[in-house]
Design a protein around this nucleic acid. Structure first.
Lengths: 92, 92
DNA sequence: ACAATATTTAGATAGTTGTATAAATATCTC
DNA sequence: GAGATATTTATACAACTATCTAAATATTGT
């Protein structure tokens, strides 16, 4: 399991970004305007998420659209379930 | 979901400690001798894990025994499954 | 090609973190 | 209670990170 993955998840702003992307894909600007920090700072977070392969991007004209990479999340779930799971698999 | 939880998981040494505790409960010393770093440094990591409620302790004479708090792991799995899960719940 | 918009990259800085050594605390045995 | 063992706490420091402002890059429309 990649170290960059857990480090990426360690920041609350990045987790919030991921949750936003759960609802729907969004451009960098749409994401950035949800936070009180500078656009450049959000861009940095997006770079971290992308490096961890938690999100993927696609250029769309002037915009860059971000989407979740759900595959990686399934790997995370599997990581926890296989190592520490026990009964963690009952889906509420 | 607690911020301290994800920060605790972000360090590879701490994840290794958790995996050791999966096998069986261990004392601080037994854990520390598995790593090339100073005992005090491992103790610091144990403190972080405990603060995140990922482990619990029990004094046993001169030793202090650490065990996993599996409840918290189930919360982590649930966090990922509910937010990003999709099909992450099939247990291989 | 120029101006406008969207996004990233560069450079700087303050705060956090992982590690080390040394000192402190707790328990046990004699 | 003194000494030995186990563990944590204190202090210091180098490395990393989140943030900022400013500059750079990319795309679109005129």
């Amino acid at each position: 399991m990649e170290d960059s993955l857990f480090r990426a998840l360690a920041d609350p702003t990045r987790r919030k970004i991921l949750e936003l992307l759960t609802e729907k894909d969004r451009t960098a600007g749409e994401i950035a305007e949800q936070f009180p920090i500078a656009f450049a700072s959000v861009s940095h977070h997006l770079g971290v998420l992308k490096a961890a392969d938690l999100v993927a991007t696609e250029r769309e004209g002037q915009h860059i659209r971000y989407r979740l990479n759900t595959t990686v999340f399934q790997e995370v779930v599997r990581y926890f379930m296989t190592r520490f799971g026990g009964e963690g698999d009952k889906h509420a």
